[in-house]
């Protein structure tokens, strides 16, 4: 069984992945895993909370759409998928992968061949945004008046 921190970090990566990538990862496994749906995939809402001044008392900003699903892989762990957006299939795939990543024959390989490269790609995308932002940073200079 993996630690909660490890599980949190792959769930964060899977939640940001494209559905097609997750679909291909599951289809690519041999023998093909099978699973039982514990809670069918559904889409709904989560109320996004903020804080006054960023650090103060809580208030509700507005809702966001969320899809979720719970599955259990055959002879294995229970997996949970909660993802931003309305893609129910993606929530199911995240749940399946969450279960497979916890233990069993695919855990190691999925971590190496799916989660690690996805995390790398997401960090690279973030760095691209930050480097565009960095190019718009103001360099102040002081005008010297008179002699």
């Amino acid at each position: 069984m993996e630690s909660i921190d490890a599980r949190k970090s792959w769930l964060a990566v899977l939640a940001r992945a494209e559905r097609a990538t997750l679909e291909a990862a599951v289809i690519g496994l041999s023998p093909r895993p099978s699973w039982r749906v514990v809670k069918p995939a559904e889409s709904g809402l989560a109320m996004v909370r903020g804080r006054a001044g960023g650090t103060g008392q809580q208030f509700n900003i507005g809702e966001m759409s969320v899809a979720r699903c719970v599955v259990q892989v055959e002879g294995g762990a229970v997996g949970v998928g909660y993802v931003a957006g309305r893609d129910k299939r993606k929530a199911e795939l995240v749940a399946v992968l969450d279960a497979l990543l916890q233990d069993g024959p695919f855990a190691e390989r999925l971590r190496r061949d799916l989660v690690a490269p996805l995390a790398q790609g997401q960090e690279a995308a973030r760095q691209r945004v930050l480097s565009k932002a960095a190019a718009t940073k103001v360099d102040f200079f002081t005008m010297v008046r008179g002699s």
Partner: peptide, 23 residues
């Protein structure tokens, strides 16, 4: 539209100091 959807709960308060800042 939102009235047709179930509410799964509330998020933790977002941490804007951890924002990936564009501006």
């Amino acid at each position: 539209y939102r009235t047709t959807l179930p509410r799964f709960g509330a998020t933790l308060p977002i941490d804007t100091s951890a924002m990936t800042v564009r501006r």
